[in-house]
Nucleic acid binder design. Structure first.
Lengths: 262, 262
DNA sequence: GCCTTGTCTTCTGTAGACAACGGTGAACTC
DNA sequence: GAGTTCACCGTTGTCTACAGAAGACAAGGC
């Protein structure tokens, strides 16, 4: 009897952790990856028949997958004309970064005072993964792991809906950053990224929410500035204006950003 | 020529506002309504074949609709077992109310200082609709319009993603409140609801974000307390503890709520 | 009498096919 | 020569049909 349970239990556990992968879920993961890796770029048309052949799946589950990605903010539907990868303009960048920042702040306010040991351990594990990726010199993976780290930080709050919203915005943020990734990593260096996240974790361990908030705000604005620098390249006047606003707002609230005109 | 444009333009405009109603979209709207009106209650199984017959639509578009509602947080999928209406426990109520409150605060901080005239007008129109519903004595519509009003307030920020997240949470909130609606309305009275929203609009017009924030926090906690009162009915000890925490946090930050144990 | 096991039904997951709409290009008319 | 119209093609939106799995129920064994 004891043997039987030891045989069946892993099966049950596996099923709970990884439910039998439906084609729709696999398709969603595959297309999401194609978008985040830049294989599909913002504005690109997504033709259902092409993807069905490419992924070896029929259209109904693929369409379900597209609806999911649409809700995640990665695709937009144009009735009778199919879906395209969401085009990102300056205002979108503004929206994504401000809302993400706000959610992160809320998570810290909720999660840091509690400092649940297992959730903190998740953060530490995420940092280790980030370091491993840096050691391997894999820029793309470093970006992925950095996002995972932030997700773990948000996870401190034990707030499922908050985490889910944050995850969705992170995906869109990666979409923004996709094209500029090489330039960004080259500019900062992999270990620069690691160092900044190490500092965040150290602050977390100390458990002072205010300190964490300041650090995260700095970190977020750093990333934001980098992103703006790329998004606005060639429009230096606008870039200047934005950076000036950021400088002003840094001493203010994290929300002290005004929406761009465009 | 001028005639042609005047003929086609309304068509185009209408299409932008109400895209050609695909069966999937209609199905999503119909099922959403069934959930919010309580025809489908939390925990209820949603059987695809039943709905296809009920709605006169075939399964593929219905399944697409279910994926959308799933992303909206109204349904949860149980692999190989279909979907159920999301069950709401105490922790869910906590999550929904805290996150919604935070988003609303962010919207006010962004939107009130600007006070875009057309967006303010949208708020006024929403309040008028609310008053009309109260005049008609229609409790369900009053609830709907109250939510619309809050959505209009959030719309002040001109932040699409913020508004979308807020909308999703409002749906879930309505799911929480669905069952207790009669009791709540009876307890407060339709015009009590109207009066509180009138006060919010008046504050908005004055344009002081801090004032609006205080008012909204009070309003949100009022609703929260009502909801808790119903959710916790029969468990007065827990209810007492929660209310005490609320009392303490009111003078603190709007986020001064700790997660419930369950 | 209770547990186990086998079968049966029901529902989900998926595939393939049809219909309708929109876009594009060429031909025709002015 | 330019504008317009029409027809074709491609794509989406939808439906019907099939395979496979999960749960329910009944019959048999312990």
């Amino acid at each position: 009897m004891a043997e039987r349970t030891t045989v069946t239990m892993p099966d049950e556990a596996a099923r709970r952790i990884a439910p039998p992968p439906s084609m729709a879920r696999l398709a969603a993961d595959a297309v999401r990856k194609m978008i985040l890796t830049g294989e599909l770029q913002p504005g690109d048309r997504v033709v259902e028949n092409q993807l069905t052949h490419q992924l070896g799946v029929s259209r109904p589950p693929l369409r379900e997958a597209l609806r999911v990605l649409e809700q995640e903010g990665l695709l937009v539907q144009q009735p009778r004309r199919g879906v395209i990868v969401v085009p990102i303009n300056l205002h979108d960048v503004y929206e994504i970064f401000t809302l993400r920042d706000q959610l992160e702040r809320m998570a810290v306010e909720l999660g840091v005072p509690v400092r649940s040991p297992d959730r903190l351990e998740r953060c530490r594990a995420a940092l280790r993964d980030l370091e491993d990726a840096a050691r391997a010199g894999d820029a793309a993976t470093v970006t992925d792991r950095a996002f995972d780290f932030h997700l773990a930080v948000v996870g401190l709050a034990g707030h499922r809906r908050l985490e889910e919203s944050y995850r969705s915005l992170s995906l869109q943020m990666r979409l923004c950053m996709g094209m500029n990734q090489r330039a960004r990593v080259a500019g900062e260096g992999l270990w620069g990224i690691v160092e900044r996240h190490r500092a965040i974790l150290a602050t977390l361990e100390r458990g002072n929410p205010q300190e964490v908030l300041e650090m995260l705000t700095d970190h977020g604005q750093h990333t934001f500035v980098l992103e703006l620098g790329h998004s606005l390249s060639g429009r230096s006047a606008e870039a200047e204006a934005w950076l000036e606003r950021l400088g002003r707002s840094r001493s203010d609230t994290a929300l002290g950003l005004e929406a761009p005109r465009s």
